[in-house]
Simulated scan of single mutants.
Amino acid sequence: MKPAYFIAAAFAGALLPSAAFAQDATPAEVTLGVTAGYHDLGISDEVYDLTGVEVDDGSPIFGGFASVDFPVSDSIFIGAEGNLSIGTDAIDSDYGASARLGYRTQNGTKVYVRGGYQWVELDYANMLNVDKSAIPAGLDDTVGDYLVGGGVDVPIGSKAMFRVNVDTISFDTLRATAGVGFRF
């Protein structure tokens, strides 16, 4: 397990106790949920142009998130979020942390922008459609860079929500996810 997994897990775990403590001062909203989506690395054309080799540079992803939001006013909130996803093709996993700034409507819908850092663990064998033994041992397969994006959380009843996010990592990739969460 990579050290960055522990960083992302520790960040997500740290959100919950700090959010519970902060509720004494202002009501915070903690959300835990699951997501599914697609992460396109956006490198297939460049690799083909440079090498003539076709690569599969996208992957379905499945994972979860933990977030905490604090009200700044009746309609503005700030927050933090941690995420972890497992991929099936070109991506073994991706994980990261981000800060959120958004607007909460009267019905509870949250529209937000976010920025943070995301790590992506690549599966070179799947990308190149070769056996794992063809990939040199010890080759670094984890890359990371800043993440920017936005999303919408729509309430479903009093505790559940549906969410959609679209993000990019350093304006090179496209990562779209949808999921459900439960607020505490």
Rank of each mutant, 00 (worst) to 15 (best):
F21Q: 13
A22S: 11
A22D: 08
Q23S: 15
Q23M: 10
Q23E: 13
Q23N: 15
D24A: 13
A25E: 13
A25F: 13
A25D: 12
T26I: 14
P27L: 11
A28P: 03
A28H: 10
A28C: 11
A28T: 14
E29G: 10
T31V: 15
L32D: 11
L32C: 14
L32F: 15
L32P: 09
G33Y: 06
G33V: 09
G33W: 06
V34H: 02
V34S: 10
V34N: 03
T35P: 04
A36S: 13
A36G: 15
A36N: 07
A36P: 04
A36D: 05
G37V: 04
G37A: 08
Y38I: 01
Y38Q: 01
Y38P: 00
D40E: 11
D40H: 09
L41C: 04
L41S: 02
G42K: 02
G42N: 05
I43D: 07
I43G: 06
I43L: 13
I43Q: 10
S44A: 15
S44D: 13
D45N: 14
E46C: 00
E46D: 15
V47K: 04
V47I: 11
V47R: 01
V47M: 06
Y48N: 15
L50I: 06
T51F: 08
T51C: 07
T51V: 06
T51Y: 06
T51W: 03
G52N: 09
V53Q: 11
V53D: 07
E54S: 14
V55M: 06
V55Q: 04
V55N: 05
D57T: 04
D57L: 05
G58I: 00
P60Y: 08
I61C: 07
I61K: 01
G64Q: 02
G64Y: 01
F65T: 04
A66Q: 03
A66R: 01
A66W: 03
D69Q: 12
P71T: 06
P71A: 12
P71R: 04
V72F: 12
V72R: 09
S75F: 13
S75V: 13
S75H: 15
I76N: 10
F77M: 08
F77C: 05
I78K: 05
I78E: 02
G79F: 07
G79A: 11
G79W: 05
A80R: 06
A80V: 07
E81N: 10
E81Q: 15
G82C: 05
L84Y: 12
L84A: 13
S85T: 08
S85C: 08
S85L: 08
I86P: 03
G87K: 00
G87F: 00
